[in-house]
């Protein structure tokens, strides 16, 4: 959306304004709600087209976080996130890296996660951009929209609290997390980079379909980089930032803090500590 249609912030950040860049491309479609979730959590959101960021990479020095929202950047042509990811990898990876090194955060949601994976920023073993995981076509071979339960399985991520659970929806066709090989899979676990896992009906693993909606290896729904400041996840936390968004709302009433919003709050708390 253009700045003029940008949602109004419900409250202003304090004391210093924490700025999160919502970076969109042709086909991004969750930019408004992703920015709004950060605003609800106390940051301020600035939405820019990637063309603008490519023109002025310096804007990345002026923000405290970046969110790459969901959508179909470039229509998912050539594989979800490939075109957008290729642009970032070629032209912005260093600037993003510097942001993270300063203590800033990067969040990739759904298509944003697909983009992060194509850039190599996650998992980012040894802080290199090697692409060692991918998000393959769902085993069902079709797009699916459904609510799932996630569990935070790392103590590294500034977006998460270990053990915390989140009810949020997924909506994608390419979300089956797939590591390059067995070594990569083991390392993801060993280094605490498996950030979120789909949880089955009894809370255990492996979670059967449709609790694991896409057939992701080890029920992995999201991974973090080694610093814990970059998070990519397939589900949409921004779609559970108001109580009435939950499909359980009509039955169980309003939750005090919607599950998805908590991730944004944790992230903004981290930014407050750093900046």
């Amino acid at each position: 959306m253009s700045p003029a249609t940008k949602p109004r912030a419900p409250r202003r950040a304090k004391p210093a304004t924490l700025r999160v860049l919502v970076m969109r491309a042709a086909g991004t479609n969750c930019d408004r709600e992703s920015g709004f979730a950060f605003e609800q959590a106390g940051a301020s959101a600035v939405t820019l087209h990637v063309n603008e960021v490519l023109r002025r990479p310096a804007v990345l020095a002026d923000v405290h976080g970046v969110v790459i929202p969901g959508g179909f950047s470039h229509g998912d042509d050539l594989g979800a996130g490939t075109v957008f990811g290729t642009k970032i990898r070629a032209r912005l990876a260093d600037a993003v890296r510097r942001l993270v090194d300063r203590g800033g955060i990067v969040l990739g949601i759904c298509n944003g996660f697909q983009v992060l994976v194509k850039t190599g920023l996650v998992p980012g073993f040894d802080h290199k951009l090697d692409r060692t995981v991918t998000l393959a076509q769902n085993l069902s071979n079709r797009y699916e929209d459904r609510w799932v339960t996630l569990e935070a399985t790392t103590d590294r991520s500034v977006f998460l609290r270990p053990g915390e659970r989140y009810r949020v929806p997924v909506a994608h066709a390419e979300g089956r997390l797939l590591p390059l090989d067995e070594r990569t899979r083991k390392r993801l676990h060993a280094d605490g980079q498996v950030a979120l896992r789909y949880v089955g009906p009894d809370g255990g693993h492996p979670a059967p379909y449709p609790f694991n909606p896409n057939g992701a290896v080890d029920d992995i729904a999201g991974i973090t980089d080694p610093t814990g400041r970059i998070l990519g996840l397939m589900p949409h936390p921004e779609r559970h930032q108001f109580p009435w968004q939950s499909p359980d709302f009509h039955r169980d009433g309003a939750k005090e803090t919607p599950d998805g919003l908590r991730m944004f709050q944790h992230a903004v708390e981290h930014l407050r500590r750093v900046f």
């Binding site: 709600e33 949409h236 930032q241 968004q245 499909p247």
Partner: peptide, 15 residues
């Protein structure tokens, strides 16, 4: 129904 994204724009209340 599940092949359609009915949640995007974060406005869904009754699905």
């Amino acid at each position: 129904i599940r092949q359609y994204d009915h949640e995007v724009q974060a406005g869904a209340v009754v699905r």
